[in-house]
Computed example of a mutant assay.
Amino acid sequence: MTDNATPHDSAAAPVDAPPAPFAPPAAPPAAPPAAPPAAPPAEGAGENPWAAPGEGFVPFLAPPSPEELAARRTRRRKAALRWSAAALICVLAGTGAAVAVTTPDRTDIPGLATRTDGRYTFPALVLPPLPSGQAAPVENKSRHAADLRHLLLPAPKEAGGSLTPVVFPTPTPTPTPSATATASGSPSGSPSGSPAPTASSTASGSPTASPSGAAPAAGVPAADWVPCDAMAAEQKEPVVLRSLLLRNVCRAATVREWTASDGTRSQIRLLRFGSSVEAWDVFAELRADGAPKDLPGLRPASVQGWDSVRGVDIATRESPVITGQGRTTGYLAYLSAGDIIGVVTMTNARGVEGPAFRQVVTLQSDLLA
């Protein structure tokens, strides 16, 4: 055997083929070109699926017709008129409600009325005119020249008084007064020339002649001239008060009384003297020892918190509280204003309202200040 291969062996042995060259992956097939968008069909060339049967196609952006524009304007005008009418009705209703609530008094509106504290309704206070050449009083240093009756507080509405402001007659010049005492214990004359009440007075206590020389004008509340010692009969010790009035030469006196709808009886007396010194002497005695018979057990009452009236001194008294509502049955006040002394009395068996007493005293002080 030899090591050389035979041709048969070489021909029969397989021969390795060379590797095939690298080929890239084939690209995907291209998509077919998109078809161009179809043009919108011509008018009348098709049917609108949203149109009513029998209607042709209407372009979506077609401009409104003149009839439609006119209809829109009409609808807008009607809507504006409706809203304007609604707004006007609301304004009128609100205005009417405001007027209905604010025009009447609060106490006349149901649900808003508050319980009264007893105060009265007085007309607007008016100071009486002064005689020609006379000056107004200055605190406690001068005398009052006005008619004493016109310085009285008028009756309130609750006692049948009028709410019309008082109209006073024009004062007339009068002669100088004298200081002669009358038989009744009242000195005659007054600082303004008013004749003092004498024993010739009528049964009602009014003098036969008008102090101002003329009859009171219409609208002036009725007030009586009375003797200076008329209030002495109301005191527990009338002799003491009569002597006091004679010693200090009381010139004139007047009084006003009323009974309110709540049953409270009010009385206001004014007494005129020749000077503030004489008037103060009487005021001091009354403040210390005054004792009306109809008001037993009087005790000092506080005036703390009251509106102060310049030129007027006030001393108040009250009866003990005996009513079931905790109110006193009587109040008394003495006022001193220059040459005039005032005495305010308010009584009621069912109790007197404290605010009403304070109101009457303050308003009367305003007229004397």
Rank of each mutant, 00 (worst) to 15 (best):
S84G: 11
A85F: 09
L88N: 06
V91F: 15
A93L: 14
G94M: 14
G94Q: 14
T95K: 07
G96W: 13
A98K: 12
T103S: 14
P104D: 06
P104G: 03
T107R: 15
T107Y: 15
T107G: 05
D108W: 10
I109V: 15
I109H: 09
P110F: 11
T114C: 02
R115I: 10
R115E: 14
T116P: 08
T116N: 10
T116Q: 06
T121V: 06
F122A: 00
A124C: 00
L125Q: 00
L125Y: 03
V126P: 00
L127A: 00
L127H: 13
P128M: 07
P128F: 08
P129D: 03
P129L: 02
S132T: 15
S132G: 08
G133D: 10
G133S: 07
Q134R: 13
Q134K: 12
Q134Y: 11
A135K: 10
A135V: 07
E139Q: 04
N140R: 06
K141Q: 10
H144F: 07
H144K: 03
H144C: 01
A146E: 12
A146S: 03
D147V: 04
R149L: 01
H150W: 14
H150A: 05
L152M: 08
L152K: 04
L152H: 05
L152P: 09
L153D: 06
A155M: 09
A155V: 06
A155C: 02
A155W: 05
E158N: 01
A159D: 03
G160P: 03
G161V: 02
G161I: 01
S162T: 07
L163Q: 03
L163S: 01
T164G: 01
T164D: 03
V166Q: 00
F168N: 01
F168H: 05
F168V: 01
T170W: 03
T170H: 04
P171N: 04
P171Q: 01
T172P: 00
T172V: 04
T172L: 10
P175T: 08
P175Q: 11
T176W: 09
T176H: 12
T176Y: 13
T176F: 11
A179T: 13
T180A: 10
A181P: 07
A181R: 13
A181V: 14
T182V: 05
A183V: 08
A183F: 11
A183G: 12
S184P: 00
S184E: 05
P187E: 08
G189I: 09
S190V: 03
P191Q: 12
P191K: 09
S192R: 10
G193Y: 13
A196C: 07
T198I: 04
A199N: 15
A199G: 10
S200D: 15
S201G: 05
A203Q: 11
S204Q: 09
G205S: 06
G205N: 04
G205R: 11
S206W: 09
P207H: 10
T208Y: 04
T208Q: 09
T208W: 09
S210T: 08
S210L: 08
S210Q: 11
P211S: 04
P211Y: 03
P211D: 02
G213F: 15
A215H: 08
A215S: 14
P216A: 11
A217C: 06
A218G: 04
V220G: 00
V220M: 04
V220T: 08
A222T: 15
A222P: 08
A222F: 12
A223Y: 11
P227N: 04
P227I: 01
